[in-house]
Design a protein around this nucleic acid. Sequence first.
DNA 1: CCCCAGGGTAGGG
DNA 2: CCCTACCATGGG
Length: 277
Amino acid sequence: MFILNQNGFNLKNTFENGQCFRFYRDGTGYSGVALSKFIHLEENDGIISVSGVEKEEFERNFTDYFDLNRDYRVITESFPKEENLIKAVEYGRGMKILRQEPWEATVSFVISQNNNITRIKNTVKKLAEKYGSDIGNGNFAFPSAEELKDVKAEDYALLGCGYRSEYLENTVKSYLDGKMDFGYLSTCGYFTAKENLLKFKGIGPKVADCIALFGLHYTEAYPVDTWVKKVSETLFLKHSASKKEIEEFARSAFGEYAGFAQQYLFYYARENKIKGL
DNA sequence: CCCCAGGGTAGGG
DNA sequence: CCCTACCATGGG
């Protein structure tokens, strides 16, 4: 166990904003599996302590994973001074956008479509327990594409993946065939990456943007789900809008930090009943 | 029983 | 480019 010397890192606002599916509140804090390691974080009187991984391991990999070197003030101060967005930023203060692994983000957000967060977490948990490697104490790493090589659609269906099962089988195949190349996708730029992701069956505009933002770390991505669509229309555009119109709005209003604005708005809208939504 | 969930696809206009 | 029926499943 060691103390994390980090101001402005709020655990609840990071782990309960729907960006990741493997962390749970465990009484004294939050614990989960990330980067194939079990990790526990808790906060007492503003002091965050970490257990499960050694300090050296944390500094090597998790400082980046938790995006702790980024100055979030630069981001939020660049936002337009809109009343509801200001409230959303205040509400989500200390939120970090995790720099997740591309493969895990891809599979997780394929599962996420037309689904709810509780059920997504349950499904991902079952997926890891059945196919991921055992990392001890009842914890399992997220399964690699190689570990999912022989898993068929009917096997995913047994986990409750529903009609997404065929998409998952296809996703694994695409990765193993080399057609889904995260090395390329993470360096080719946001628009090219999204365009490429859209070619895979089961990956549409919203899932592609989630992969781009959470897995490839393109901060200009603005995933538009049912909540963000309603928020964007009601609070900013003042009329119903097509997906394209919402994307263009996000690009001009938030620019390279659209992904952060999106996450503050999503979290705020989902946790609060915003009048008129 | 209903409605909904961090939507996508296929098929049509 | 737009719109819509349909898609499995379980939480609430």
